[in-house]
């Protein structure tokens, strides 16, 4: 099978859906002729024209609020944030308007808005270009939150997003954009709320998202040599969260570690741990562990930056510690 990058996969997904559905339009800064800061719309301007590839002024709140009204009146806006950090000015429009439209209107209106942007720590981007924010969005009812870790999942989930009538936050880790993996040329969609078992194992369950999937995979072989068999699960969407697949795995392994680049307090790990405690307590042979990024803004200097993200050696050590419980 051919291999393409994460970036090529989402571009393909978007272009295929735009060709099929003339109601899809994209808005963002530099997404027109320029093709997007991360090539998210490269070449689409020539195919679909300026109304459907609309460059915006730097007014995030404005164009996200616009997207709400557009979605309510029959089109399907795709808002390209560039960096997910930039959209916090529009948090009210997302949380108070877009996420609530369907409910407030008693189901009379739909809110097919796709909000996409890059997340993640790396490359000394500094703290205004490194955030991930998905636990925050997953907290609110009415939003789908997608955090793919590879090109295949990114394509299938972006296509799913563009066929969903619910608002979707589609967050793309910057360090994954040029990573390749096999992606079929035939049409496929991946449903929300269906985790992927990245690697089967027997001794310990590790749940990880986005870049942390790759960081964990790096140590799995080494741990195998030490006699520890890791089952690695990538939920792919944090809202909805596929807790069933995690529970099934914990039933088998008895141990659970959640590795997450974002902050620990009130985070994804806390949520998964609470749900596994509720429904899988009898399967646990050890306390659930979390390994998170530091609870601080993201520093610039490379050694400081590396210190606030879970690195492979830390992940390996956490797994060993959990096995020793």
């Amino acid at each position: 099978m051919r291999e393409i990058t994460f970036m090529q996969a989402t571009l393909e997904a978007l272009s295929e859906e735009m060709a099929k559905n003339p109601k899809i339009f994209v808005m963002g800064e530099g997404i027109g002729k320029r093709g997007g800061n991360f090539n998210t719309t490269k070449g689409l301007f020539d195919l679909y024209g300026p109304d459907r590839l609309c460059d915006t002024p730097i007014c995030e709140r404005g164009f996200v609020g616009l997207a709400a009204g557009a979605a309510m009146t029959g089109t399907r806006p795709v808002i390209d944030f560039m960096f997910a950090d930039f959209i916090l000015d529009a948090a009210g429009e997302i949380i108070n308007q877009i996420a609530k439209i369907q409910y407030m209107s008693g189901g009379r209106l739909k809110a097919p808005v796709l909000l996409r942007g890059c997340i993640g720590i790396g490359h000394s981007a500094g703290t205004h270009h490194s955030g991930s924010y998905y636990p925050m969005y997953a907290h609110f009812p009415g939003l789908r939150v997608v955090v793919p870790s590879n090109a295949y999942d990114a394509k299938g989930l972006l296509k799913q997003s563009l066929n969903s009538n619910d608002p979707v936050l589609f967050l793309e880790h910057k360090s994954l954009l040029t990573k390749k993996c096999p992606v079929p040329e035939e049409e496929f969609l991946i449903p929300f709320g269906k985790a992927r078992i990245v690697q089967k194992g027997a001794d310990v369950t590790v749940v990880a998202l986005a870049m942390m999937v790759h960081q964990t995979l790096e140590v799995c072989k080494q741990l195998e040599g030490e006699g520890v068999s890791v089952e690695l699960i990538d939920p792919r969407t944090v809202a909805p969260m596929d807790i069933e697949t995690i529970l099934d795995s914990v039933h088998k392994t008895g141990r659970l570690l959640i590795v997450d680049e974002t902050f620990a307090p009130c985070g994804i790990g806390a949520e998964i741990a609470a749900q596994v405690n509720d429904r899988g307590f009898d399967d646990l042979d050890a306390p659930i562990r979390r390994l998170n990024g530091a609870h601080s803004p993201t520093p610039y200097s490379p050694p400081l930056e590396a210190a606030v993200v879970p690195q492979p050696d830390r992940i390996a050590q956490e797994i060993r510690d959990l096995m020793a419980e």
Partner: peptide, 30 residues
């Protein structure tokens, strides 16, 4: 809300009606 008569919503937050009406205008353009 009554989309069948073009009432796309009243709001408890001051300001979004301006942006949402702009968005509807953009829909009509597309």
């Amino acid at each position: 809300f009554a989309p069948e008569v073009g009432l796309m919503g009243t709001s408890g937050i001051v300001g979004p009606s301006i942006l949402q009406a702009t968005g509807a205008g953009y829909s009509f353009k597309v």
